[in-house]
């Protein structure tokens, strides 16, 4: 074989699991939203959750940092979720710390009504950081990582609410990564953005996955195909298929997956 062909162009990513979801079932009151879900989210990979509305993908996403705890009447009825090997429902787990380790970016950008700087510094201050030099450096690094620094460096003290939708979403990503989480959960992060802003967020995810583990819920099949390494397809609370993204979008094993991604559902 030619020498040029012997070396892989892309070094395979780690196969270690940052998050292990083991036989998880979840209910909203008497309505079962997730049924016996088992899957691993590998470190430094982007995993996409896809499926029709109401299939449970956002519910599962919110289980990973216990956001569903805030909804009365909901509960995991069986199974467990491990983050870096630790059961997130163990009594010793501090939920605030869990949500720092497992950050979340929402569908609609939600900057605080304060300055750009303070938005990014918020998590650091909450963590107890008092050294202003450390805070300033981390804010700058986070904004640079979120590809926003050049656009806001001269107006850090201005209100974050004055930024465009795409900038606000990248600010929220900067705020999330400022506290150095292990996992970043994204719930339809680009659904309200124009194609340019969407491309910037996708570029961001692609560049940041070397440092973080991403999970993205999306209704945009092309986005899942573009940014994710592996894709999980959910339907009525069940995990129907979970495989390499290339496999899912070229030759899914399960007929239901094929019907969904090719637009034949109904």
């Amino acid at each position: 074989m030619n020498d040029l062909l012997e070396k892989p162009a892309i070094v395979p990513t780690s196969t270690a699991a940052a998050v292990e979801i083991r036989k998880v079932s979840f209910s909203y009151g008497s309505t079962q939203a997730l049924k016996d879900i088992t899957l691993d989210l590998r470190e430094n990979e982007v995993t996409a959750f896809i499926g029709p509305s109401g299939c449970g993908k956002s519910t599962l996403l919110r289980c990973i940092n216990r956001m569903n705890d805030e909804i009365v009447g909901t509960r995991i009825t069986q199974g467990e979720i491990l983050v870096e090997g630790i059961n997130i429902h163990h009594p010793s787990v501090d939920v605030v710390k869990l949500r720092r380790d497992v950050g979340m970016v929402f569908q609609k950008s939600n900057p605080f009504p304060s300055s750009i700087f303070e938005n990014v510094a918020f998590g650091l201050r909450m963590r107890g950081e008092r050294n202003n030099a450390v805070i300033a450096q981390t804010v700058e690094e986070s904004l640079k990582s979120a590809a926003l620094w050049d656009e806001v460096k001269d107006r850090l003290q201005e209100s974050a609410l004055g930024l465009s939708g795409g900038q606000q979403q990248r600010l929220c990503i900067a705020r999330t990564i400022a506290v150095k989480p292990l996992v970043v959960l994204m719930d339809e992060p680009c659904s309200a953005l124009d194609p340019i802003a969407t491309a910037k967020v996708e570029e961001l995810i692609w560049n940041l996955k070397h440092d973080y583990t991403f999970v993205i819920v999306t209704h945009n099949m092309q986005q899942a195909a573009r940014v994710s390494d592996r894709t999980a397809f959910f339907y009525i609370g069940e995990l129907i298929e979970f495989s390499d993204t290339k496999r899912i979008f070229s030759n899914p094993r399960v007929r239901k997956t094929e019907e969904y991604i090719t637009g034949r559902f109904g």
């Binding site: 099949m221 092309q222 979008f249 070229s250 899914p252 094929e258 090719t262």
Partner: peptide, 9 residues
């Protein structure tokens, strides 16, 4: 249409 799977093939 950005076809995938059997449509793309």
């Amino acid at each position: 249409f950005h076809p995938v799977a059997s449509d793309l093939r």
